[in-house]
Amino acid sequence: MEEKRLIRSRTNKMICGVCGGIGEYFHIDPTIIRLIWVILTIGGFGSGLLAYIVAAVIIPEEF
């Protein structure tokens, strides 16, 4: 059995594949993850944008 890993998606991506990778990891539609991210960015005074940038740097890309 293959180990489950959080990775950025190459196929389901809009910018860097972070939301697509999170959606695939938790078996959730990536659109829901994107909506949550937008709400976090607008409601959190840009904290969602900072979190996305950090996640794009930290989470490895799918190989």
Rank of each mutant, 00 (worst) to 15 (best):
M1T: 08
M1S: 11
M1F: 07
E2P: 10
E2F: 07
E2I: 02
E3K: 09
K4L: 13
K4F: 01
L6M: 05
L6A: 02
I7K: 13
R8Y: 03
R10P: 00
R10S: 08
T11F: 03
N12G: 02
M14N: 01
I15H: 09
C16Y: 11
G17H: 01
V18T: 13
V18L: 08
V18R: 05
C19Q: 11
G20F: 07
G21Q: 04
G21P: 02
G21H: 04
I22V: 15
G23F: 04
E24C: 04
E24M: 06
F26K: 11
H27D: 14
H27Y: 08
H27S: 12
I28M: 10
I28R: 09
I28G: 00
I28F: 04
P30F: 05
P30A: 02
T31N: 10
T31I: 14
I32K: 12
I32W: 12
R34H: 06
L35M: 14
L35G: 12
L35K: 10
I36H: 01
I36Q: 04
W37H: 02
W37Y: 00
V38R: 09
V38M: 14
V38Q: 07
I39Q: 00
I39C: 07
I39F: 14
T41S: 14
T41F: 05
T41W: 06
G44Y: 07
F45D: 02
G46V: 01
G48D: 03
G48M: 01
G48I: 02
L50V: 15
A51Q: 07
A51Y: 11
Y52W: 14
Y52I: 11
I53N: 09
V54S: 03
V54A: 13
A56E: 12
A56S: 15
I58M: 13
I58E: 07
I59A: 08
I59L: 12
P60N: 13
P60S: 12
E61G: 13
F63A: 12
